[in-house]
Design a protein around this nucleic acid. Structure first.
Lengths: 213, 213
DNA sequence: AGCAGAACATACTCGCCGGTATGTCGTCAA
DNA sequence: TTGACGACATACCGGCGAGTATGTTCTGCT
């Protein structure tokens, strides 16, 4: 019901980096990773390369910082809901989905970039960055497990259908993550975002709930 | 029930182009558009640039050919189901989703590339290619409308919840398209693919069906 | 006042990659 | 038999963009 969430919980990045991250997120959103130039990022915030390279050693580092920030925002928001054993599994899952949907819209550029990272296999040659990518994938796995656990609870309680909980997270999170692709952060006010998040949470709960008969 | 679909309906491309499309699809799947080199594509099929440029004038043309092929495969498979008025809306939607899910797995590379194309805004400078991209987006829109129409039917028939049919296609197709990102075409036989497609179709139908009470 | 270092901007290098120009080998028709 | 053309391979060019090297200005500290 009352859902004015989506406030920053994560530690704010160094003041100089904040602008870079924001600019880079929107730049990467436009053209993808390789297509986006460091100069693009700099121009996005009315600066030059020097500013970017003053805070980051490589393009991949900027990218990874965006991704981990986005992932962390997801975890920070959803983890508390998942762990709230005071609520029944269905309600918890509904709120988890609702919150996730909200972040896909309000933090669109960050989430869109984060989404892309997980589907990436390589990120340049540096093994350090390669390892960082796998760290991100590990975060995503743990995040998926949050949903899988709640689904299992609901299944054992008899509210949800008899599904493979790990497989069931796929259509669930797929539907939610997809929002970042079609939602235009320019248009849409608080109410429309709320309507969309409601519809998604309802859709997902319906998809898992045990059939009437 | 019986669902041995996913056979080629589209006109086969010129014999020389076929290999290129296949190689390029897997290459693009690995690294994305800009990150993939023409040499990558050539090496993928044990050839050199010359062979690619003999059949295509530019990198973007290869990409667009893959995308339109993928989109056409979707339309060719789903359109007949959507138009089969002999079946009730729920059954039709179930089969549409099931078929779509199947293509995401069997034709993974093509569909994954096609998926990426729609979220692209620009594709180089050439306005001809830019227009081609918008054609692809138009195909996707028409495709979405196939689902929206069936949803509307089911809604008026009282089987589906009272949703905005156009908005409802978003979580639906989002969940389905997402398959191309996590499904590994190497692993998995016919049976597992069938199980996944079943689960997705069930999930989607549940998400739209009117609640028991 | 003066100096150290942060916070950038500017100028440059250098490898990679899309595209082109040119060569080579077959094949088929007259 | 030859010569025209398809089907490629090879050699090359030019630009773009990541990263670097080198300024320049501002700030805080002593």
């Amino acid at each position: 019901m009352t859902a004015d969430d989506n406030e920053p919980v994560t530690r704010p990045p160094a003041p100089g980096r904040r602008d870079i991250l924001e600019a880079a997120a929107t730049a990467f959103t436009r053209g993808g990773y390789t297509a986006t130039t460091i100069d693009d990022i700099a121009r996005e915030m009315g600066a030059t390369k020097g500013r970017v390279y003053h805070y980051y050693r490589a393009k991949a580092d900027v990218f990874l910082d965006i991704v981990t920030t986005g992932m962390q925002e997801l975890i920070d928001g959803v983890q508390p809901i998942a762990g709230n054993t005071g609520l029944d599994p269905a309600t918890r899952l509904w709120r988890m989905a609702h919150h996730h949907a909200g972040l896909m819209m309000t933090r669109n550029s960050f989430q869109r970039v984060a989404m892309r990272a997980v589907e990436m296999r390589r990120l340049g040659e540096a093994p350090a960055q390669q390892q960082a990518l796998e760290t991100v994938v590990a975060m995503r796995d743990r995040y998926e497990q949050l949903f899988a656990d709640v689904i299992d609870e609901g299944r054992q309680a008899g509210v949800f259908r008899d599904v493979d909980s790990r497989l069931a997270t796929k259509p669930l999170l797929g539907a939610l993550n997809w929002i970042s692709l079609w939602y235009d952060p320019q248009r849409g006010d608080y109410n429309t975002r709320q309507r969309v998040a409601d519809e998604y949470a309802d859709f997902i709960l319906g998809g898992l709930r045990r059939s009437p008969r």
